[in-house]
Design a protein around this nucleic acid. Structure first.
Lengths: 130, 130
DNA sequence: CTTGCCCCTGACGCGCGGGGCAGGGGTTAG
DNA sequence: CTAACCCCTGCCCCGCGCGTCAGGGGCAAG
């Protein structure tokens, strides 16, 4: 039943590549997995779920470092449970709120910078092309 | 009278560093300068002006490659002359218009992407922190 | 002549999320 | 047993505009 799989299958199941999984492990986003006697990594379905979470957060603009610093909470997001979160008091997944707000601020700053740049460039367009 | 100067003085006069001048030369933004008998580069005030133009365009978001492809026209922008431009017919500095519009489009696309990202992230903020 | 600043070339570093080798060994169907 | 994959580690590659050495030589003042 979707038991243990090797890195290629796990990566495919999570929509990515073996290289990415080794990279996440190296950066501390994934714990060192069980190995076969021959040294090959073996993953269970929970890891696939975790990798999906990681990729979703990366796609939202969080950095690998952001996730590494909170790696021990990544599994809490997997089940997407509003109930168990509240039950943990100040121990819930709002661990990510600070880093998300930081990212939002960085995005706003970058958007503002690009917007200013765009305006400056548009102004000089007239100067140069006329 | 502000005659020939070595790379350090020319760079300082243009508000940058010797490294940048060698880099612009390497990438084709500056022509190979005159050398002293000992092999040291010598620049005149016209080069300083040209470097200022280069830096202004780079600050507007154009890339080194953009400028390299139009390097032979960089001097035309130096004097900022609306008269001599028109006198050259379709040969004026509107050579830069296409690349500028391309940059504008790229900026718009990037701004839109970041804006979408920001909205997605803001949505998930509620989901995650609540 | 020496001191101290300037210049030369060539090469690596950066930040970020991996991609793409090379050179070796595991594994499984035929 | 062998072919055809798969996996392992370790390393360099990408883009961009330079910064920053490293190891050598030039140039003007005292």
């Amino acid at each position: 039943m979707t038991g243990r799989m090797r890195i290629g299958d796990a990566a495919a199941a999570a929509g990515t590549t073996p290289r990415a999984l080794r990279f996440y492990e190296e950066r501390g986003l994934l714990p060192p997995p069980v190995r076969t006697a021959a040294g090959q990594r073996e993953y269970g379905p929970d890891t696939v779920t975790r990798v999906r979470v990681i990729r979703a957060l990366l796609a939202l603009g969080l950095t690998v470092e952001d996730l590494a610093s909170r790696a021990h909470r990544l599994d809490l997001l997997a089940a997407d449970p509003p109930r168990s979160c509240a039950s943990e008091g100040d121990f819930g997944p709002d661990t990510f709120a600070p880093v998300i707000e930081q990212r939002l601020a960085a995005l706003d700053a970058e958007i503002a910078r690009l917007t200013r740049l765009r305006e400056a460039l548009a102004r000089h367009t007239g100067t140069v092309e006329a």
